[in-house]
């Protein structure tokens, strides 16, 4: 008898506590930028596609929900011919972002991805690519890599000496 009264009393007291439930979707909670939600592909500061199709995100993904195919433009710059994420499998672990050597793939604080049909959760490159550098402004992989691409010759990357003249006999 006493325990029933005590429980009723406690429930009654809760009416005066501060409310933690948020009236989503009218009210939106604050999510930190490092929140791991919907994945995007970002662009270099100069607007080029950042992803170099290295397959590291795909291999890091524990549920194997990233598939892509590398290709190259006529200047030797590599990019994904297609890039697909199956969000109906993605567990938003962020391993892909961690693996990415170019900061191309990033998780964002958007989790509103509910769909009635699983097919709609299959995102292609067009759906993933955004127009800016996302969380990491300033970084451009091609400026630190050694391969030559359009607009960047050998020896023109950061901290690179001009190409060696192999014909020279100077000691």
């Amino acid at each position: 008898m006493f325990s029933i009264l005590r429980t009723t009393g406690r429930v009654f007291l809760h009416m005066f506590h501060r409310r933690v439930t948020v009236q989503y979707p009218e009210q939106k909670p604050y999510l930190a930028p490092r929140y791991r939600g919907r994945i995007i592909l970002s662009r270099d500061p100069d607007g080029g596609e950042r992803c170099v199709a290295c397959y590291l995100c795909a291999v890091a993904c524990p549920v194997d929900c990233i598939a892509l195919q590398a290709t190259e433009d006529e200047t030797g710059r590599r990019y994904p011919e297609f890039f697909r994420i199956n969000f109906s499998r993605c567990i938003f672990c962020g391993y892909c972002e961690e693996a990415c050597p170019t900061y191309a793939i990033q998780l964002t604080p958007d989790f509103e991805m509910g769909e009635f049909h699983r097919e709609n959760l299959v995102y292609e490159k067009e759906d993933l690519l955004i127009n800016g550098p996302g969380k990491y402004p300033g970084y451009n992989f091609w400026n630190v890599a050694g391969v030559k691409i359009g607009g960047k010759d050998k020896g023109e990357a950061e901290l690179e000496a001009p190409p060696v003249d192999v014909q020279s006999l100077m000691p």
């Binding site: 194997d64 990233i66 598939a67 697909r84 994420i85 199956n86 499998r89 097919e119 299959v122």
Partner: peptide, 15 residues
């Protein structure tokens, strides 16, 4: 380490 098993064919069939 074979990757992409749940995405390679997702454009054709998601299961």
């Amino acid at each position: 380490r074979y990757s992409g098993r749940t995405a390679m064919l997702a454009n054709i069939t998601v299961s």
